[in-house]
Write a protein that binds this DNA or RNA. Sequence first.
DNA 1: CAAATAGTTCGCCGACTATCGTACAATTAG
DNA 2: CTAATTGTACGATAGTCGGCGAACTATTTG
Lengths: 120, 120
Amino acid sequence: MHLHHPTNSELDLPSVLHALSDPQRLRIVRQLADRAGPCACSSFGLDVTKSTLTHHFRVLREAGVVSQEIVGTSKLNTLRRADIDARFPGLLDAVLVGTAPSGDHGPAFGAPLTQPAAQA
Amino acid sequence: MHLHHPTNSELDLPSVLHALSDPQRLRIVRQLADRAGPCACSSFGLDVTKSTLTHHFRVLREAGVVSQEIVGTSKLNTLRRADIDARFPGLLDAVLVGTAPSGDHGPAFGAPLTQPAAQA
DNA sequence: CAAATAGTTCGCCGACTATCGTACAATTAG
DNA sequence: CTAATTGTACGATAGTCGGCGAACTATTTG
């Protein structure tokens, strides 16, 4: 099953900005940038259910912000940094700077990397 | 009547990105950047009604992207470039580069860049 | 096989969005 | 005073969005 990823030249500025305009997705992108390696969807400590998580990752992928690869039962996410930089130079850096932990209500994503619901 | 403008430190990244994630508003911002001077709402050649225009300018103002000043029957809009640059360095430049006329259906109204008010 | 793990899919909800049209207000020009 | 110009306010409408839960698929592991 091939997940659809927009090509480099298909990247659309309004779509990318929209993908980045949600706080949850912004947290995902910042963590992805910090970690600089593929991460499973469930490893971001977001306080939303799995289905909502699926939704956000699809928005990010369809806008071309992340790429996803299925490995086992996981879907590994990678920031498409080079592609976005090539098409919209400086955009990602600016967004990441503007999302710096200082001014952010940090979710302190050190502890609860588990789903809020769906377990007991 | 004082229009509400968020202060510099009230600028919120998701809100700004959301304001910029609409094609019409992106056109407004690009033109504002090109002209580098206050312009009335109706001088952007957008193919939407006046009420829709009012809506878009309100979104831009409430996100802190533009400032508005009432002069006569007009409302003059200015890009809050310095404020945005201070809070989110590089963001506006990146967005403006990514909005270059190449990929846009250029409005091509090179003529009426005149300010309706303030002179005659 | 059975259980656990990781995501997906679907339907639903409430809230918001972009758009319109009509009616209105305020200022400027004749 | 009477237009004309510029924008606002107020619905209304069709659509999107973020969120949930429940049921499902697929893979890995005991």
